[in-house]
Amino acid sequence: MIVVGGGVAGLTTAVLLAESGRRVRVWAREPAGLTTSAVAGGLWWPYRIEPGLLAGAWALESLAVYEEQARRPQETGVRLVDGVHHGSRLDELGEWAGRVPGLRECAGGVAARLPVIDMPAYLAWLRERLAKAGCEVEVREVTDLAAVPAGVVVNCTGLGARSLVPDPEVHPVRGQLVVVENPGITTWFTCVDHSRTGSTYFIPQPYGLLLGGTAEEDDWSLEPDPATAAAVVARCARIRPEIAGARVLGHRVGLRPARSAVRLERRRLPDGRPVVHNYGHGGAGVTVAWACARQAAGLASAGL
Rank of each mutant, 00 (worst) to 15 (best):
E181I: 04
H171V: 14
K132M: 11
L164V: 06
T143G: 15
V139A: 01
L209I: 02
L126R: 14
G212E: 06
N182E: 04
A133D: 05
A237N: 00
A121E: 09
T228Q: 15
H171A: 15
P168L: 11
L145E: 07
V192E: 13
R235S: 13
A121C: 12
L123E: 03
D219W: 01
T143A: 14
Y122H: 14
K132N: 12
T200R: 02
P172V: 02
T187A: 11
L126Y: 03
E128A: 10
S221R: 05
T200W: 02
E141M: 09
T187D: 14
Q176P: 07
E242H: 00
E138Y: 07
A124R: 10
G160A: 02
P224M: 11
P241E: 00
R238Q: 12
R240M: 06
A124F: 02
P204T: 04
W125N: 07
V233Q: 09
L123V: 07
P206E: 01
S199A: 10
V178W: 06
T157N: 09
E141P: 12
V232Y: 04
D225N: 10
E242N: 03
L159T: 01
D218E: 12
G151D: 13
G208E: 03
P172K: 06
A231F: 10
A230W: 09
L210R: 11
T143F: 13
P206W: 00
T228C: 15
R174P: 00
V232L: 10
C236D: 03
A146G: 03
W220P: 11
D218C: 11
E169G: 14
C135W: 01
A215Y: 12
C156M: 02
Y122L: 04
E128W: 00
G184P: 01
W188M: 11
A231D: 15
F202Q: 05
R140N: 07
P241N: 00
C191D: 15
T228S: 13
G198V: 15
A215C: 12
R238P: 10
V178M: 08
C236I: 04
R129L: 05
A234E: 15
V137R: 06
V178Q: 06
L126S: 06
R162H: 12
L123Q: 05
G158L: 00
V179G: 08
G212N: 04
E181M: 02
D193Q: 10
R238H: 11
N155P: 11
V137P: 06
A227G: 15
G198I: 14
L209M: 02
F202N: 06
R127K: 13
T200H: 03
P168W: 08
V173Y: 04
V152I: 05
G212Y: 01
P206G: 04
V153M: 05
D167H: 08
T197K: 05
W125S: 08
V233R: 13
R174N: 02
F189E: 04
A231I: 14
V180F: 03
C236M: 04
A124M: 04
P149W: 06
G158S: 01
R240S: 07
V148Q: 12
V137C: 06
Q205I: 05
G160V: 01
A124H: 02
H171M: 13
V165H: 11
G184A: 03
G213C: 11
A161S: 12
